[in-house]
Amino acid sequence: MRKVYSRPKSLKRNPFHYCPGCGHSIIHRLIAEVIDEMNLRDIVVGIPPPGCSVFAHHYFDIDMAESAHGREAAVATGIKRTDPEVIVFTYQGDGDLAAIGTAETIHAANRGERITSIFVNNAVYGMTGGQMAPTTLSGQKTTTTPYGRDVSLEGYPIKMSEMLALARGAVYIERTAVSSPANIRKTKKAIRKAFQAQIDGLGYSLVEILSACPTNWRMSPLESWQWIEKVMTKEFPLGVIKDATGASDAN
């Protein structure tokens, strides 16, 4: 009998604690598969954030070091500059990367740090109880926008990927979703491309992944996956936002 599915070596034998339907567990698995397939386990260091994925090290069987909220790109910079052979990735939520960590993120991208950011956009602050994130959609109800996000007061859903694409040092940026088997496959391919850009020493790479938070969205897992496809992707269109990996101005 041919074995077609098993636990990646880069995942520990611990069951995920994430809520049913949560995107984090799928994304963890995809990253672990890519690390296995690209044979990176011996040289990879992951930086998980404060957020629902703060216990990522409980699942990943790779070297991992905690970061302060939003500072992952700076921490990754310190590691990478110390040993350029290490493959470093940050794993960040939208509260983390798009609010408190914007400065660190933009400047790491602009310096063209050879690091990879996995940016999980679930349109809310998951861990702290479903408050508004910078990515919360217009009109979306959260615990701090109980009447729906009013863009005239609270601003617009922030488009980090598009903004980061302007940075010359950023070489690969793609937005994907873990909302259907096809999109999950695309997400894995994007993660692989992002890691490859780092391995090739080209510059900063980022994959923004639209990911369900059924608990804080007050939806069933199925509804939340449909919501990503029907609603969220209108604001955050999927696709490659920047690919300078073949361009001559990639540094």
Binding site: V45, A65, S67, R71, A74, V75, T77, G78, D83, E104
Partner: peptide
Amino acid sequence: IQAESEIAAINMVYGASLAG
């Protein structure tokens, strides 16, 4: 590295120290 802020600088120190 001339960092973008003192916060970034100390976190780069943290990363560099992590890496030894």
